[in-house]
C-alpha cells in the first residue's frame, strides 16, 4: 500500500506550482544600491549613424519578390502562426532578433546574411546562410529544420536578402551579433537570482516562464521551461546570454546592467531546466553534465 502513496507524493512534486506573481512593489526597492562610485565602465552605446540602416517596410516592392519578402517578414515576426510546422516551442524569430531583425547588437539580419557562407565553430565546417537558419529552427526554436527548398525557408532568405539591401558582402559590419562582454572573476547564480528578480521578473515572470496573452501566445518569451530554446541553442551558452542581456535587456535601457550583473543573470538562467539537446541521447542528456560554455 506504500507504493501508491509514494507515487502520489512524487507526482505532487513534479506538478507545476501555481504561485501567483507577487503584488506590485517596485521590485528595485527590495535591494536599493547606493554605494560609492568606484567602478568606471565604458558604455559601448549605439551611436546612430554608425550602424547600417535597412530599408523600411513601407518600401517593400509591390511585385512577386515583394510578396515573398512580406511573407518572410510574417514568418520572422510571427513564427508561431506562419512557421508553426517547424517550431517546437513558444518562441518567434523576433524574440531574439529584436525589431524584426533590424536592431544592432541583437543578431541583426542585415549583418548576418551578407557574411555567409562562413566557417562555423559549432559544427566545424563552412555553412551557408540556409544551413545556419536550419540550426536556428533545430536548436533555438526546438523544432525541425525546414529543407533548403521549403517555401518558408525561401521566404525567410528573401526577407533577409531584402533587409540587407545595400549592405557590403563578407565584412564584419558594426553591430553584428550581440557585442562583447568580458567574463568577470566569478559569475554567481545566487547573485544573479537577486538581479533577475528586480530587473527581469516583471516581464518574464518570477518563474521565468514568460507571460502569455489570453489567446495562449507569448507576450514576453519564456527564458526556460518547455516553451524555451533547448540546451543546444547558442543562447544556452552563458557567454552569449550575457552578451544579449547586456546589449538589449531590459527593453528600453540597453547597456544599463554591468558586465558582472549580466553574467550573473546568465548563470542563473543557465542552471534552469530546458528542453534536451536533440543531438544527444536521452541518457547523455539526463546524466552527463555540461559546462556553461558548451552548447
Amino acid at each position: 500500500m506504500l507504493k501508491p502513496i509514494l507515487m502520489l507524493a512524487l507526482m505532487w512534486g513534479i506538478m507545476p506550482s501555481f504561485a501567483a506573481d507577487s503584488a506590485e512593489v517596485r521590485p528595485d526597492l527590495v535591494k536599493p544600491r547606493a554605494s560609492l562610485p568606484i567602478q568606471l565602465i565604458k558604455v559601448p552605446a549605439p551611436n546612430p549613424g554608425e550602424y547600417f540602416i535597412p530599408p523600411y517596410v513601407a518600401d517593400i516592392p509591390e511585385d512577386k519578390y515583394g510578396a515573398v519578402v512580406e511573407w518572410g517578414r510574417k514568418i520572422f515576426t510571427d513564427t508561431q502562426t506562419y512557421g508553426k510546422r517547424f517550431v517546437g516551442n513558444g518562441l518567434n524569430c523576433s524574440s531574439c532578433h529584436l525589431s524584426e531583425g533590424r536592431e544592432p547588437f541583437s543578431g541583426p539580419i542585415w549583418a548576418a546574411y551578407p557574411s555567409y557562407p562562413d566557417y562555423r565553430t559549432k559544427t566545424r565546417n563552412v555553412v551557408t546562410y540556409e544551413e545556419r537558419v536550419q540550426d536556428c529552427f533545430k536548436y533555438s526554436l526546438d523544432g525541425i529544420a525546414p529543407t533548403i527548398d521549403a517555401p518558408e525557408m525561401e521566404a525567410l532568405v528573401a526577407y533577409s536578402h531584402w533587409l540587407s539591401t545595400g549592405a557590403p558582402t563578407n565584412t564584419h559590419l558594426p553591430g553584428r551579433g550581440f557585442g562583447s562582454v568580458k567574463k568577470p572573476q566569478e559569475a554567481q547564480a545566487e547573485r544573479g537570482k537577486d538581479t533577475y528578480m528586480s530587473h527581469c521578473s516583471q516581464c518574464h515572470g518570477t518563474d521565468g516562464l514568460g507571460k502569455k496573452h489570453p489567446d495562449g501566445r507569448y507576450m514576453f518569451p519564456p527564458l526556460w521551461g518547455k516553451d524555451s530554446f533547448n540546451r543546444a541553442a547558442g543562447m544556452t551558452k552563458a557567454k552569449t546570454m550575457a552578451q544579449f542581456i547586456r546589449a538589449n535587456m531590459p527593453l528600453g535601457a540597453p547597456f544599463s546592467l554591468s558586465e558582472q550583473e549580466a553574467w550573473d543573470i546568465a548563470m542563473y538562467i543557465w542552471i534552469q531546466d530546458r528542453p534536451y539537446d536533440p543531438r544527444k541521447s536521452l541518457f547523455v542528456n539526463m546524466f552527463i553534465p555540461v559546462t556553461p560554455g558548451q552548447h
Binding site: 544600491r33 567602478q39 568606471l40 554591468s258
Partner: peptide
C-alpha cells in the same frame, strides 16, 4: 565613462 554603481 559613467559611474556604474551610482544607481539610486
Amino acid at each position: 565613462a559613467i559611474y556604474e554603481d551610482l544607481t539610486v
